[in-house]
Nucleic acid binder design. Sequence first.
DNA 1: CTGAAAGCGCTAACAT
DNA 2: ATGTTAGCGCTTTCAG
Lengths: 362, 362
Amino acid sequence: MKAILANLAYYLKRIVMHKEFQVADSRVTLRDIAREVGVHPSTISRALNPATREMVTAEIAERTLAAAERLGYRPNTFAQSLKTNRSYTVGVLVPDLTNPVFPPIIKGIDRTLEEAGYTVVVANSDNQPDREQMCLERMQERRVDGLILATARLEDPTIERCLREKLPFVLVNRTTAKNDIPSVVADETAGIKMLVQHLTDLGHRRIAMVSGPHHSSTGLWRFEAYVSALRDHGLEFAPELATQSDTFTEEDGQLAAARLLQSGHDFTAIIAGNDMIALGCLSALKNAGLKCPDDISLAGFNDMRFIDRIDPPLTTIRIPLEEMGSYAARMLLGDLNDDPSSPQTIRIVPRLMVRSSTGPAK
Amino acid sequence: MKAILANLAYYLKRIVMHKEFQVADSRVTLRDIAREVGVHPSTISRALNPATREMVTAEIAERTLAAAERLGYRPNTFAQSLKTNRSYTVGVLVPDLTNPVFPPIIKGIDRTLEEAGYTVVVANSDNQPDREQMCLERMQERRVDGLILATARLEDPTIERCLREKLPFVLVNRTTAKNDIPSVVADETAGIKMLVQHLTDLGHRRIAMVSGPHHSSTGLWRFEAYVSALRDHGLEFAPELATQSDTFTEEDGQLAAARLLQSGHDFTAIIAGNDMIALGCLSALKNAGLKCPDDISLAGFNDMRFIDRIDPPLTTIRIPLEEMGSYAARMLLGDLNDDPSSPQTIRIVPRLMVRSSTGPAK
DNA sequence: CTGAAAGCGCTAACAT
DNA sequence: ATGTTAGCGCTTTCAG
């Protein structure tokens, strides 16, 4: 009796659906396959899941797979997630998608995570801390299994929150002051050293810096590396030659460089906090009637796309961005699977790219 | 093959899923709030949903909201989606995230959809049709409510499939041959006309074109617009001056431009299918020992980021990319809400950006 | 090896 | 206005 009612309900459902969706959404469920194969839905579930497939007869497994294929079965991820409490979704938070540094990182993350069966959800914070929190909130609502943050500041409330809420997460590109969170970053010190070496080789002795904001690791550490690299070369650190850009953007880079130029101090080279800031420096130099590299040499950091096509092609430090993203993804996967061998931090060694924006000191 | 790939992803997922997972997730449910407030869970559900809030007493609504806040309640989207069959997720398919054209489009989409309560999932097809199908399959597994495709070719199996499966979707940037699908694209004809006008104003009579691949609307239509714009100016279309780049990349653009140059035909200007191809043309010109714009003028299309910083700054056609994305998102929202007033197609009028890559004809 | 049954957290039709 | 009830589709004990 019960079974009859159940069947009746089923057919009624089909009829209604036929009308509403016009076979649009062939919502095939386990039960449909079960009916086809002539076994219980839970058996179908077992047959479909490779991890439990051995529990069923080879013959049933085969017929199940065939029927699933034939009917165009697609597991309902909501039901799966509701049951297992796993979303197979990872959130990625970036400060600005239109900054060419991030797309390759995302690509690397996506590739690696996709292979592991995860879906990536990218969110743009537009460099605004409150938007960042909003994004995080949404990710939590979406019940992401983990997060990859490319937005880290040295003191970072978003990270504090992830820690507090015990969300598995890793950092990429930037890290925190304590650097105690799994992260994949470039070896900033090594990169800056290469740059200083390159410039001193060209005869530069008065090297200025327009660093990124010191609330981010890439801002502060590159600055500190600059100071110590100068010392290594027996050059004195002159505070008046060090300026800080408020953000990693062309605009603020230009402003900072303009301040530096207006100060009247002399120098023959500038190291910029990254390529974006370098672009700003270039504008400032142009406005001041200075030629690069004839009057002032200029170097950047990141080797972002197209930076070799600008005028003049920029000498910079290449970071394997896609690889960095891929590492971060693997690290997070290690986290999610409680793999203790997963490293706590990776520091990628960068490479000097010499181009035309640096030349002999005047 | 398609099915095998789809299944593979599924299996991989399942294997990992087998592992245990313990999260310190403060899983507050409706029942917890119900207990606090002293009413039935369904009342809480009604109080929490703005659309049904009027069904409950103001006092209970208030206490519910307070309790939800206090307990840190977060609705379980899986349960909601399972019940309502709505995921509030939209998929966006792009051919290449590292092409600077797409991030602004995505940004516009994201912004608009986020406001409407949707989450955006971006997938990268890397210009590979089979990867595109895989991405689509994943999106369907994720049960996206709709799709925005930036990958359209004139004849497009992915689009055919969306149509067949009755997935709500719109196109952005590119469209299909029949152009019968809701889409937001630039007015390619108007853009090319501006370019031809600009070049003829500068005295150019022999204008070549390195178009994008003719299997995409942006490739073919810009080419056709070029032919007809020449006619409008009383210039004869010379087939030997028209080359096609296999893809919208620097590399293929360079190859195509090199072919054009080696052909020995003379011309004084090149219109490139887009800015990426223009970059390739620039390389080809350089390799041929030709100076731009002194020997040959060059123009692109899209006005992508940084194209004004290259050497020489490129004359091109500006498309409001973020706006385009935003329009596409609104269009899809109209679709999802069965809004009949939602337009079927939007053609955005672009703007000529004159820079230094174009000059008087020799 | 397979079936039965429970239930993940939520919504919505129905009942009061 | 609120409670009751019945699932959404799946996984996973527990029986047999």
